[in-house]
Amino acid sequence: MKYKFVDKAKKLTPEDIKAQMNFDNVVKGASIWAGFKLGSAILKLGSKVTASVVAGTSTVVVTAAVVVATNTDLLKSNSPDETSEPATEIVVEDEKLSEEEITPKKVETTPLVAKKEKKEEGPKPKVEQQTEAEKAIPKPLPQKTVSKEDIIKEDIVIDASPLPNLETFLDFIDRELKYPVEEIAVNSDSLKKIEGYVEVFFTVNREGKANNFKVRKSLGLLFDNEAIRVLRKYQNWAPASYNGEAVESNLKFKVHFKVK
């Protein structure tokens, strides 16, 4: 038995606790511990501290006398399971981590994707958007006397967007993007039929320059490189702004490859 189980913890009264208080003793005792090294590794996870304790089985088990008999069997059946456990679960952890890494960026980038879908409506030029946002700040003032603090609480976040507008950017991609046919043709004819998209992730810095290109969803090295090559050429971005201040932001963009 590693632990001594009790059904109910004893009740403590504040008086009980107070009775144990003795600051003078602590002060006196402090000198004893002066040479003692703190932060000992007694409670390290994975340590075998309890191994030595197991011997002391004489303590009375209040609740689980019956269960103890089956205990060893259960331990045996579980032990192989437990050894294999860390390996599988570490994978899960990693996945979680990478997910966490991606998700916030996803949020930031959705407007770009959304805008792309609304292409027919004609996206507004960036300049107009910014002025609107600036107007939004003083707007509430005449309606009622709002204190400065109230206004600041409303964060205005504008995502990075291509300049002068999204259409130009998409046209540019269409124009520049080349299906890497020559390279592929060397290998096999059937590969020419590859269609799909490369999801590229990149950063737009405060100066409106795109950098730090990374492929999130790959379509093969040739396609990845082509997609990044084209995106890198386009260096005309309006940086994202947070309360009117330019900030670095991350964008995600899908470059579609189609056989014409």
Partner: peptide
């Protein structure tokens, strides 16, 4: 906590676990 486990180890005592929790 470290003092507790120090004690459990040195005195060969077991940690109490209150099941009601």
């Amino acid at each position: 906590l470290n003092s507790c486990y120090d004690y459990f180890r040195s005195q060969k005592k077991q940690r109490h676990v209150s099941l009601e929790n």
